[in-house]
Nucleic acid binder design. Structure first.
Lengths: 189, 189
DNA sequence: CTATAATCGGGACCATCGTCCCGGATGGAG
DNA sequence: CTCCATCCGGGACGATGGTCCCGATTATAG
């Protein structure tokens, strides 16, 4: 009933798709979401049209870049949920998300709510990083490890603070210092 | 030696300058730094050229909008520095900056490091909000009210978290909750 | 009142960027 | 080897937005 045999793509198409994906991953990571599509095409060594054919919009390209990384993160969240105390699991996953975003400006901007909506990419991927963090937060609060009253929106805001450009990348430990402040603040009084 | 008598500006020029300044203040506050200059001109009821003549660049317009508000804030910081304990003064000024930014998206974006550099506006104004916050931080740390190791950059990052769009504006107390988390985390252990 | 210089309005101009299109090239089935 | 569906390159197009220019207007000195 699909009506589509879905013939296998040509070899050069697959190759170029991979080239674009790698170039985009690196460009989004280092330059952030504002990197022009033309620039990604240039870095990949292909034409602009090639990028647009494989990924109709810039957002779909970003979603594709995040897809595999997101799967790893949700798996990590699930592992922490079963092996750690609720509080420890939440704080560990929170810190891991920050470190992930530190190495990937595009992801950081997306987590911080600037640019694309990370939720839409998550839904496409079937793996919802935000959902896992939300669940871990709830569990940690039920266990009394995180103060009551804190909402998921509060946590996302604090996360964006930890990911802010202000945190000096040359200052080893700066990121961990900020994470420590937020986590200590989140603990129940 | 100036060679310029600097004749007083015409009445309509002064009037239009004030109109632009008021429209810009409101537009930057509600829409953020991304509001188009054309839109500010429209709201002020003047032509685009009129805006550009009084304020050659968008950034200079923003600096002018902030000028008076910044003076109020630095004065407030100086008052707190003399009437309060070092720790209390720092935390109070920190919270006031957040609340100020809550009512002014443009200021929030600027404090968060997105868009224009607030320092340049400060230098022009001769009143350095960042400098006061830095000084209060130092004093609070010397008094043992804020944990050691925290840098000014760390504080700016945490501030941007409190100002994040994620904080639900319809949730009364959400902002204060986030501020409380950060301030508790900053206190010496 | 008149002359003149300051000011006004808003459209022109330029740069940026996402998306789309089309003439040419090519992979791969037969 | 041949042929054509698929894919490629990169320029065109449209939208957005900051800055600048020029003909028309108006405040104000004398």
């Amino acid at each position: 009933m699909t009506g589509k045999p879905a013939r296998a793509p040509r070899a050069d198409a697959r190759r170029n798709r991979a080239l674009v994906l790698r170039a985009a991953a690196e460009a989004f990571a280092t330059e952030g979401l504002s990197v022009p599509v033309h620039e990604i095409a240039r870095r990949a060594g292909v034409g602009t049209g090639t990028v647009g054919r494989h990924f109709p919009t810039k957002e779909s390209l970003f979603a594709a870049v995040l897809l595999d990384r997101m799967a790893v993160l949700t798996a990590r969240a699930d592992a922490l949920a079963t092996t750690e105390e609720p509080g420890a699991a939440f704080f560990a996953f929170f810190a891991e998300l920050i470190h992930e975003g530190t190495d990937h400006r595009g992801l950081a901007e997306s987590l911080a709510g600037a640019g694309f909506d990370i939720e839409s990419a998550a839904v496409e991927a079937g793996s919802d990083v935000s959902g896992r963090l939300h669940a871990l937060l709830k569990a940690a609060q039920d266990a009394g490890a995180v103060r009551d009253g804190i909402t998921f929106a509060d946590v996302k805001a604090l996360m964006s603070g930890c990911l802010a450009r202000e945190v000096d990348p040359t200052d080893t430990g700066a990121r961990d210092r900020v994470i420590a402040v937020v986590c200590d603040g989140l603990r129940a009084t």
